[in-house]
Simulated assay, not measured.
Amino acid sequence: MTDEIHQAFAHPEARAAAMAPADPPDRLSLRDHIVAADIGAFQQERGQEQRLRFNVVVELARGGGDAGDDVDQILSYDRLTEAIAAELAAERLNLLETLAENIAARILAEPQPCRVFLRIEKLDRGPGALGVEIVRSRAEAAPVTAAEVPHPVVAYLDNATIAAPDLSARLDRLAATAAPVVLAVGLPDTTRPATGDGPCQTRIDLLAIEQNAWVLASRDPRLNVVATRTELDWAMKQGNMVVWAPSKLVLDTPGAPGSGEDGVALAAWLAGELAALRLVVHGPVSLPAACRVPVEPA
């Protein structure tokens, strides 16, 4: 038991050595790599970068010694730091456990690794380091084939369209397309609180848009409100028509619009994120000047 406790709190490299067979594999290690990131489940952690310390040990498959001195033939240290940077940039996460799983999976996608030991610690949440340590093996991981997500049509509906008597007919026309449909709305016509504080106001505006999304959903039984990328991907795979609630994706995605005032701009951003076939805009609103997908009026 003493050895197990010692290994549990030792450097990941020591644990890798203790768990290895008599003929140990080669190992690549990254020690005390510190990065500032916005992560955490608590409200006070949002919008506040904190230091994360990464320690990584990768056990490598034997390559027969034929790599020579060619950096392209080995697992570079850069691949470890790039895996960390890529997952931190992909989306804002609440849990270190999720971040660790994603980084380990990205490293194991390389051809050389057999097993990954990964420790992540928060350095600014208390007097000590708070963290998680995982071990993941290529041999234990079942191969995963990601199902292709179809390209949707994103449609923005202004408030007059939401309240229009012909809403059902408009939805019928959208549903008749061969692609799944994601509906987006803007701010309601009702008065909302004004705070004068940018981040707080953005949250208030996004919540007001979500209220408007539920108003739209109440007007047609085909519609459900979805908030996460997982829900969006599932709905698109099923060919469902859904209404987007923007708060989670906007707040958790680096590079997302920093304001909730312009619903059309949010819809254009979503269309780009989903690689939509086109953005269809209902109502006399200003079309976005820059959009990664074709934009057309309804």
Rank of each mutant, 00 (worst) to 15 (best):
M236A: 15
D205Q: 15
S218F: 05
Q201D: 04
Q201G: 07
Q238A: 15
D189Q: 13
S218T: 08
L223I: 14
L223Y: 10
L206F: 11
A194Y: 06
L207G: 02
T230M: 11
V226G: 06
D233L: 06
P199F: 06
A227M: 10
E210M: 00
D220A: 05
W234L: 08
P221H: 12
T195Y: 00
N212L: 05
K237S: 11
R222D: 07
I209V: 15
T228H: 12
L216A: 10
A184E: 00
N240L: 12
W214C: 13
D220S: 02
T195W: 01
L207Y: 02
M241W: 07
M236D: 13
A227N: 12
T202Q: 13
A217W: 15
D220M: 00
P193G: 07
V226D: 03
T191M: 10
W234R: 10
P221M: 09
P193K: 04
A235R: 03
A213Y: 01
T191E: 06
L216H: 05
T228D: 09
G239E: 14
T190S: 15
A227P: 09
A213T: 01
V215T: 12
R192S: 05
G198Q: 06
V225F: 07
Q211A: 08
P199W: 04
L207R: 00
V226C: 09
V182K: 00
P193C: 05
R219S: 03
A227S: 09
L183M: 11
